[in-house]
Amino acid sequence: LVVVHQATPRDWTEGEITLLRQVADRTAAEFRRARAMQELQESELYFRQMADSMPQIVWAADEKGVPYWFNRRWHDYTRLPEGHLSAEQWQKAFMEEDLPVMLGGWEEAKRESRPHSVEVRLCRAEDGVMRWHLARANPVQDPNGNVVRWFGTLTDIHEQKLAIEAERQSEFQSATALRMASLGRVDWSLTTNQVDMDARCREFFGFAPEQQLMVQDIFDRIDPADRARVEVAAGESSLHGTLLEIEYGVLVPGKERRLISSISQVAADVDGKPARVYGVLGDVTERRRAEAEREAFVRTIETERANLAAIIEKAPAFICVLRGPEHAVEMVNEKYVELIGRPITPGMPIR
């Protein structure tokens, strides 16, 4: 509101009224501009105070992408001086070999006015350790879509990065151990009935590397003589969440029957309900065949030994069979016992 006062009455001309209106309009515009500027400064101050309290590193850049402000966390972390930093100065805080990827992506993001993110290593000045960070940059645009500034963050992800790498190494070691042991891995989703198999397991069942598998495909390759038993056992295991150890035959078209040994465990979802079955499979055909041959050989030896014992017992001569350098008694007949006049214990040495 603009008020003009004069001590004596007068008639205001049209020009004077127009002038007063212009003064009032300009005064109001200036007042609004000053208020907006004050609110902007207060908002900027609030933003910087809030950013200084964050555990993340926060930065701001002008419309050309030139950084002009970093929060307190940046300076505490890098121990670089406050105020304007040249590109050469702030880039020294990063791992040199990460800069080409980081800066190349940054330049592309500025050209296309789009968000940008990249994983980089930043030096923690306290101990000189290069720690992994997730760097993000987001453009701020005016109503016309023009970029007026950039805001970005650097979030420490070092522990997560190490955990992921450790998990990858563990998976590699497990996969290597499975390959060395000629074992395969299987993962069955109880919600979708989809099955994921590694290359070794697919070889056991005769599936192509790219073939999408359902649990029915697996059961269809099991020997009909074993299938019902396997389905019942798998159903009870998935229902009650129990460990399942089982052997069964697998019939692949055009190949001989193979005997598969499987050990599987049920994993629950967040609600504690069975969600998936994961396990390890191995082809034990040759092992079981060797075991059967060994058992047959042992039975043959035992039969021949029994036959020999019968012959010795019926022989008209005095017979004592000794074993090894200790001359341990293996078997004797009744005539030999009568000859020496005392009982002989099998296994006792004869001196």
Rank of each mutant, 00 (worst) to 15 (best):
L239T: 15
T155Y: 02
D269F: 01
C320S: 14
L80K: 09
F151E: 10
M180E: 10
R288H: 10
S238Q: 11
N307L: 08
G249V: 00
S262N: 05
A296I: 06
L178K: 13
H133C: 14
P100R: 14
E286G: 04
I17G: 04
T192E: 15
L1D: 11
R131F: 03
E334Y: 02
R73Q: 11
P100D: 15
K110I: 12
V298D: 12
E231C: 07
R33A: 15
L251F: 00
R288E: 14
Y336T: 14
P9Q: 09
C320P: 03
V250C: 04
E159F: 03
A290S: 08
E334C: 02
Y68K: 06
Y68W: 10
R289E: 13
D223R: 10
E97I: 02
E167M: 07
A292V: 15
G15W: 03
D226V: 00
E119Q: 13
T78D: 13
E334G: 05
H240D: 12
M130N: 08
L103C: 05
G15Q: 13
R121G: 05
A268T: 12
L213F: 01
Q49A: 14
E42V: 01
R323P: 01
K255C: 02
R342Y: 11
Q216K: 07
T8H: 15
Q89S: 07
A175T: 03
R299D: 13
R287L: 09
N71I: 04
E334N: 03
I218D: 00
G324Y: 06
E167Y: 06
Q38L: 03
S189P: 00
E96G: 06
E291A: 12
A290E: 12
E245S: 14
A34D: 09
L85V: 05
P325E: 15
N138I: 05
E63A: 15
L162G: 05
L1W: 07
W12S: 06
Q49Y: 09
N193S: 15
R124Y: 12
S117D: 05
I17M: 12
R35T: 08
P67Y: 08
S262M: 02
R287G: 04
E171I: 10
F204D: 00
I260H: 00
E167A: 13
D76H: 12
T78N: 06
A225H: 15
A87K: 12
F70Q: 12
I218Q: 01
R351F: 12
N307G: 10
E236F: 07
E293A: 14
S117C: 02
I301R: 13
I157S: 03
L122I: 07
L213K: 00
A7D: 13
R114M: 08
V129Y: 04
D62Q: 05
S53K: 10
K161G: 03
T303G: 14
E96P: 00
G105Q: 14
A290I: 15
R131D: 09
E159N: 10
D98V: 01
L80Y: 07
V3D: 10
N333I: 02
